[in-house]
């Protein structure tokens, strides 16, 4: 639109620029600064150099445990959730009756997402005499100590997030439905079996959405807070004490803002490294059809 000033577009994005500076860019840099101080709300921040980071990596047992638990959580939850979401999306992609009904039913848990009410429900479902153990008893299986046993507790939170596979599934399904059907027909004529078709045609064509889901779910999983905070309160024996819980407690319970910022930056660095690796490796496995921009 030739007559417009070249700054007109800038006027429309001004709210974003203001918000970016005040609520993101400044806090982002300031927390980096804080991570090198001993700021504790009571006194002015004093520069302490890399002391916070040294303590984190050499003397802080809680951090070690928390980091380990976080990595286990992310690397078990994200793949499980995505594989399950893709599996269901592939089944729904056959022209079945009631597909809309199933799609809706599967999406409902995602809508309720991280709500506290659902975390509460999870506590009741996995309690010693809760729904799951009662259901197991019906089949004569002895109940499992979900929250008392450190190896099981984290798994209940993984299950909660896998239960919310709906939004990843809807994205997969939309991608599957947009695949050109003639590609399949050619493969059938050549005598390929179902698995070969899936492996060699479907999977390569949906790598862009696999990539998208993988990144979004990973970033999300690293920030899991509501689940462990409500369901297991980080326990038992800190087996569900994910890094966001540790940061929250340091910052808003003990008011060790400097130290908490250092933990937050470690978490950020991990997420960033993973994202960079994902983007870098995507050139090797993500397939972009011809003219697709982005």
């Amino acid at each position: 639109m030739g007559s417009d000033s070249r700054f007109l577009g800038l006027a429309y994005v001004t709210p974003y620029i203001i918000g970016l500076l005040i609520f993101t860019a400044f806090p982002f840099l300031y927390s980096f600064y804080l991570s090198f101080t001993d700021y504790s709300l009571m006194s002015e921040p004093n520069w302490v150099g890399t002391k916070n980071y040294e303590k984190l990596f050499t003397r802080d047992r809680t951090f070690d445990k928390s980091l380990k638990v976080t990595l286990i959580y992310v690397f078990s939850t994200v793949p499980l959730k995505l594989v399950f979401a893709l599996f269901i999306a592939v089944i729904l992609n056959y022209r079945l009756k009631f597909i809309n009904f199933f799609r809706t039913a599967y999406y409902v848990p995602s809508i309720l997402g991280g709500s506290i009410a659902i975390a509460v429900l999870w506590r009741y479902i996995f309690a010693d005499t809760g729904l799951v153990n009662m259901a197991l008893a019906v089949f004569g299986i002895e109940g499992i100590n979900w929250f008392g046993d450190p190896t099981n507790a984290l798994f209940t939170i993984t299950l909660l997030r896998c239960w919310q596979f709906g939004s990843a599934m809807v994205i997969f399904l939309a991608a599957l439905q947009s695949i050109d059907k003639s590609l399949y027909e050619a493969a059938w004529i050549d005598g390929a079996n179902q698995w070969q078709v899936f492996r060699n045609i479907t999977l390569p064509l949906i790598t862009p959405v696999i990539f998208f889901n993988l990144i979004m779910q990973t970033v999300q999983a690293f920030q899991e807070f509501n689940g462990p905070y409500i369901i297991t309160e980080g326990g038992p024996l800190k087996s569900t004490y994910l890094l966001p819980l540790y940061i929250y407690e340091k910052a808003f319970k003990n008011f060790e803002m400097g130290y908490a910022s250092a933990i937050a930056w470690v978490l950020f660095a991990i997420v960033m490294v993973m994202t960079v690796i994902a983007f870098w490796s995507s050139k090797k496995w993500v397939y972009y059809a011809g003219d697709k921009r982005s």
Partner: peptide
């Protein structure tokens, strides 16, 4: 960007 980084400031 994980929100935890900006939350404290």
């Amino acid at each position: 960007l994980p929100n935890v980084v900006t939350r404290i400031p």
